[in-house]
Write a protein that binds this DNA or RNA. Structure first.
Lengths: 205, 205
DNA sequence: CGAGTGACCAATGTGTAATATAGTCACAAA
DNA sequence: TTTGTGACTATATTACACATTGGTCACTCG
């Protein structure tokens, strides 16, 4: 597996360093208050008391800083989803919870940190690394649930797991992709319910 | 049912009139060549040999002209889908064909008339009348197929028809909405197949 | 050597004055 | 009445000079 923690398009210079953390902290603050575009690299530098050039000892580009902040948001979403899934027992319920919580966690980010959500939109639209990792994590979680459901006999076993998993991911994708989710806000209440029902009917043994 | 053919937000003055047709023809030509934004109402007027003011005897706004042209595109898509559906016998095959052809017809518009596709995006994003009509038509077609499948015993009958229909529409929606479809181009080959499979598994009696 | 920076450049963004456009209306000709 | 228009306004768009910004590099200081 690829180690995205030492990826040269995302990081540069010392991986563990106090200043790196300061940059991330300052960026989180500034990006969420003023937005990615209206925050300059100089702003970040000033707020931690260094020169702009020093930022570039730790990050190869402004976008790389953005990706770090975005990665934190997406990781938070994955954590919330995993937590919600862990709260119930049956695989079918896990699936419902997963779908519902992905939407709710994303929507929370949208409501409470609009500016960071906008970064997530750029990330998904321009296919930043961090988005690919996020998608993989969601897909893994989905596959785990499916595997468990197959083991317990709650889900059918004829259809190949990959096919099952892929199709269900495709159903969920419009609600995972931040840009698409925006165009589905009218459905965030009913969609996870109706679509979970449909998915579960298709998974009946 | 509401008569959108005499809707004051879309039309004005004589409904059946040669000049109206000329305007629509000129607009189709200009919009598809130069795009909606870069075509001025004066351009349309000039190309049919009248003054700009005369256009407004037939349409209440430039957008209304755009909606007319867009309505033609969407009607074409619905026709293509209905034709494709009529070509097969079994309800299950009709569903597959429907899903596949919606995507292909939209993609054809995207490939061959990019500028008109862009109008369709505006229409869907800003919820123009014409888009609502289009969605209704697709939903009706879907419901017809489901009803037939229930009658023939090909589809299960426990789940309420409305629920079934709604859920399947939600699965298809990302591929019907032109703006969302753009972000799913990577999946236009596999999605209709995988998702039709999933839907049909959920419809098994 | 490692931490840190000012000066610099190409590219991108911004403010603004000038232009173009959507839409209306009173009115004319047929 | 029906067909058709030029002149007008308020809003949107362009164009262009100017300022900012992302990013680099040679350099200093300890």
């Amino acid at each position: 597996m690829y180690d995205e923690n030492n990826n040269p398009t995302l990081k540069r210079g010392p991986i563990e360093h106090e200043v790196r953390d300061q940059i991330v902290a300052a960026a989180t603050e500034h990006f969420s208050r003023y937005g990615y575009d209206k925050t300059t690299v100089s702003d970040l530098a000033k707020s931690i008391g260094f020169s702009k050039a020093y930022i570039y000892k730790f990050f190869p580009s402004k976008q790389a800083v953005g990706e770090s902040i975005c990665a934190n948001c997406l990781t938070k979403i994955v954590d919330d989803v995993e937590k919600a899934v862990a709260e119930v027992e049956l695989p079918a319920e896990k699936l419902r919870q997963m779908f519902k919580e992905i939407i709710q966690a994303s929507f929370r980010l949208y409501s409470q940190d609009r500016k960071l959500y906008e970064i997530a939109i750029s990330a998904a639209t321009d296919r930043w690394q961090t988005t690919l990792v996020f998608e993989k994590q969601i897909q893994s979680l989905l596959q785990e649930i499916l595997q468990e459901g197959r083991k317990t006999g709650d889900f059918e076993r004829k259809t190949p797991l990959d096919e099952m998993s892929k199709a269900i991911y495709l159903v969920m994708r419009p609600y995972i992709h931040p840009l698409m989710l925006q165009h589905s806000f009218d459905y965030i209440e009913e969609a996870p319910i109706q679509l979970s029902n449909l998915i579960l009917r298709s998974l009946a043994p």
